[in-house]
Simulated assay, not measured.
Amino acid sequence: MQLEHLCPKTKGKLIFTHLEKRPAYFNKNGLDKDLLLTIALNGEQAQEIIINGITHQFPAYSIIPLVSAQDYNFEKPEQITAWQYSRDFYCNVDSYFEISCFGVLFFGYRGSQFLQLNEAGREKFSVLRQLFIEEFQTIDTIQTDMLQMLLKRLIILTTRLAKEQYLAGKIYEEEKFDLIRQFNILVDQDFKTQHKVSHYAQRLHKTPKTLTRIFSGFNYSTPSQIIQDRIIMEAKRLFTYTTLSVKEIAYELGFRDAGHFSRFFKKATNLKPSDFRKQ
């Protein structure tokens, strides 16, 4: 089952996929303008998911949020229930920062984030899944509003799981955690031209040392590692979906010297750019 809705005003998309053998919208994160944020729920059996070339175990009855720049493949897509949406569909909705498109799920954390559902959680998501199916079948003038409300409910439930499972035992200081989110947003905007932590620290009116200390307090990757990861993510996307040369990609990502970029890429991935492209 794959259902799609287009917002009449913004042309934003919402795609709901459930137990589909050949899902049309999975891993469509090439160079298209219509990039989608994804919340994917695995079924009753664990499976593998490859994210940016790295294989992870996707536990049964667990959820992973995926940002639009990530390249991913599910071992068993027919087990997956997924909600995918463009920023034009949901981000125009007035939302508190924690549940916005720039909120906790997609910019509050980096790397693989598997959120486990207990029995009560499975029931909540089962009910929500059925509500989505019913609403997709209800064609009227307020369908978009209802689907946006349901999507917001989904994001709230998933965000609560993230906070419970990843901030457990830590003091949740909203101001500090929002600083991490803002840093991630700035990196996503400026990573092609700004590779130093000092640039982002200045934008946030903090010192690099202060940022590092705050990130460490949340058991988070270092600011420099986050910048590196974002550059590598984009490099992999360009190697996968374009025919640009190593020199052209290096220039696109703010490296004046192709040799410097190649060394940077190999250190991060253990592969030369040419070897990665051959995979």
Rank of each mutant, 00 (worst) to 15 (best):
184 N>P: 07
148 Q>D: 03
222 T>W: 13
134 E>I: 12
20 E>G: 05
200 Y>T: 02
49 I>T: 07
194 Q>N: 13
125 F>D: 05
260 H>Y: 14
116 Q>F: 15
27 N>A: 15
153 R>S: 02
75 E>D: 13
115 L>E: 01
206 K>D: 02
129 R>N: 14
236 K>G: 08
102 F>D: 11
8 P>V: 07
22 R>T: 06
101 C>H: 00
162 A>K: 11
170 K>H: 11
105 L>T: 04
44 E>R: 14
104 V>T: 13
133 I>G: 03
114 F>E: 06
269 T>G: 09
98 E>I: 00
190 D>I: 04
178 D>S: 11
107 F>H: 10
229 D>S: 14
231 I>T: 06
111 G>Y: 10
177 F>T: 03
102 F>H: 11
64 I>T: 15
92 N>G: 14
165 Q>L: 08
150 L>S: 06
230 R>S: 11
82 A>S: 13
141 T>E: 14
268 A>K: 10
159 T>Y: 01
187 V>P: 01
107 F>A: 03
33 K>C: 06
192 K>L: 08
77 P>R: 06
197 V>S: 12
245 S>D: 10
145 D>H: 04
253 L>V: 08
228 Q>M: 09
157 L>Y: 11
83 W>F: 12
88 D>R: 05
117 L>Q: 00
168 A>S: 05
50 I>V: 15
184 N>R: 01
154 L>A: 05
265 F>C: 06
213 R>T: 08
260 H>K: 15
120 A>L: 10
29 N>T: 13
123 E>W: 09
223 P>Q: 10
265 F>D: 05
147 L>T: 02
216 S>M: 02
167 L>W: 05
124 K>D: 08
178 D>M: 14
136 F>T: 04
